[in-house]
């Protein structure tokens, strides 16, 4: 083999070698997310009007520790939430044979955004608000809890059929991203 041929082969091998060593590269990054505390609602206490009499309306305030409705909310501390109550128009006997009107006025709801209050001690958050509208600015308390208290009024007719009446009150809560 002549010297000329030998040198050319060396050159070709070098080119090939360099190209292979740089053909591919990769790098990694991460997808990251921090999931906040699960939101929960617990029905803690029914709205209990107790015994009522035909033709005699009865009001239950939102500040009665024994009888006001109490919903307990837990979630991410200080996170904004949306609350929406679905309120009944009537209470009914279990067999559906009679209804009794229930009404809610514009001040029969309170929301404790501190998370430690009872119906009679709520001071922080939203006091005596309208349960038929969704207030803005509601947050889970710094301790990760909030409470909603609700009162109402039943209007039995003069000849209201005797018996135990009931109706569902539903609280829906969701994070609003604030």
């Amino acid at each position: 083999m002549s010297p000329r041929i030998t040198l050319l082969l060396v050159a070709v091998l070098l080119v090939t070698s360099v190209a292979d060593s740089t053909a591919q590269d990769f790098d990694d990054r991460s997808a990251t997310a921090r999931v906040m505390t699960v939101l929960s609602v617990t029905a803690t206490q029914d709205l209990n009007f107790g015994k009522i009499f035909g033709g005699v309306p009865k009001v239950m305030g939102n500040d009665d520790d024994d009888s006001s409705a109490v919903f307990s909310i837990t979630g991410e501390a200080s996170a904004g939430i949306s609350v929406q109550l679905t309120l009944p128009e009537y209470l009914s006997l279990a067999d559906g044979s009679a209804n009794m009107t229930i009404v809610f006025n514009n001040s029969c709801c309170s929301i404790d955004t501190i998370g430690t209050a009872t119906p009679s001690t709520v001071v922080g958050g939203f006091v005596d608000i309208d349960p038929r509208t969704s207030p803005s600015g509601v947050i889970v308390g710094s301790g990760g809890a909030a409470n909603l208290f609700l009162g109402g009024k039943v209007l039995p007719s003069a000849n209201q059929k005797a018996g135990a009446y009931s109706g569902d009150i539903v609280l829906s809560v969701s994070y609003n991203g604030t």
């Binding site: 740089t22 997310a33 921090r34 906040m36 699960v38 939101l39 996170a79 994070y175």
Partner: peptide, 19 residues
Amino acid sequence: AQTVTGISDLEFGDIFPGV
């Protein structure tokens, strides 16, 4: 040599359950 460099992560930040 081409190089790939990851500059920043895909950050979803604070996520609320169910959202």
